[in-house]
């Protein structure tokens, strides 16, 4: 009970700080980094629901991210639909893609499932690159005026992240959360105790995709420009995985910590040496998997035990 109170308290304090920051007049650059951190928190949380909680590792979340980005942007550019409604629809379309993907690949397990997510994501990328009359091809899409001031964008993504964390928490303490953990631990054993593992895997994939799609749509309406190489690459998928793994898979705090740590580091590397970025990421993954598979949260737990 005590640790739960501490978590709640620190959550409220962190929230208060996050809400207060814009009023202290930080630079546009700092706001940009904060928005990226929050966006990555969102992406980490949604990937983690499928990967950390349910044990289904997806290498293809970029597809849902990209679908979100393209959906809201195209709806805005072609039909003048508000990007905020477009964001919701972006999430829905990404979720629909995921349900389709899940239903087709539901029999695949472990590495085979992971590969299928990667393959289909690559297909989506190729579609975006080649259907240039519709998607702008390699040139991508741009929106030629600022949809909302940076501060507003900040509060929007903050609100989305809070909502996502609440949803993830609700799932984790519900019957579904227990089922997902069982599926992660041993899928056959979970079936033997009456859990429809296939249904829950597809459901989780769908929910995860919804939030990822929203993230993509948000990114599009914030950055105001994107192309397939920004939103639909394997690198994009990997980023979401890193955040969860380094932070701590299967926990709600994990992606939060992962985003706070990795986004500024990535930004530093982007400025200093863009190629070192990927090298360092690879190294970090190997180190984490070898020495602290439970991520930073795992280290934190061990420290507090003693």
């Amino acid at each position: 009970m005590e640790s739960r109170k501490i978590t709640l308290l620190s959550g409220i304090v962190a929230l208060a700080i996050l809400i207060a920051i814009p009023f202290f007049g930080p630079s546009k650059y700092v706001m940009h980094i904060l928005i990226l951190v929050l966006l990555n928190m969102l992406l980490g949380q949604s990937w983690n629901l499928l990967g950390g909680f349910t044990g289904q590792i997806s290498f293809g979340h970029a597809a849902m991210y990209g679908i979100g980005a393209y959906t809201s942007t195209l709806l805005y550019l072609k039909l003048g639909l508000s990007p905020w409604i477009g964001m919701f629809l972006g999430g829905l379309l990404a979720a629909f893609y995921a349900t389709l993907l899940g239903t087709i690949t539901f029999r695949l397990r472990g590495p085979y499932f992971a590969l299928s997510t990667l393959a289909t994501a690559e297909v989506i990328r190729l579609i975006a690159q080649n259907w240039d009359t519709f998607t702008g091809g390699d040139d991508g899409l741009s929106i030629h005026f600022e949809i909302a001031p940076r501060v507003v964008e900040y509060f929007i993504i903050l609100g989305i992240v809070i909502a996502t964390v609440l949803v993830m928490h609700a799932i984790s303490i519900s019957r579904m959360g227990y089922y997902l953990s069982a599926i992660r631990e041993d899928e056959d054993a979970s079936r033997a105790i009456g859990i429809d593992a296939t249904k829950f895997k597809v459901l989780t994939l769908t929910i995860s995709a919804f939030f990822t799609g929203i993230g993509g749509s948000f990114f599009a309406s914030y950055q105001l420009y994107f192309n397939p190489h920004v939103v639909l690459t394997v690198h994009t998928s990997m980023q979401m995985i890193f955040i969860s793994i380094v932070g701590g898979m299967g926990t709600i705090i994990g992606p939060i910590i992962g985003a706070i740590l990795l986004v500024p580091i990535a930004e530093i590397f982007r400025v200093v040496s863009p190629t070192a970025n990927l090298l360092i990421y690879g190294l970090v993954i190997v180190v984490v998997m070898r020495f602290m598979p439970e991520g930073l949260v795992g280290i934190g737990k061990r420290l507090f035990k003693d």
Partner: peptide, 14 residues
């Protein structure tokens, strides 16, 4: 086939 990371109680509870 235990649910290895869960407690005994949680194994049976789920």
């Amino acid at each position: 086939k235990p649910f290895g990371k869960m407690t005994i109680l949680k194994n049976i509870q789920v």
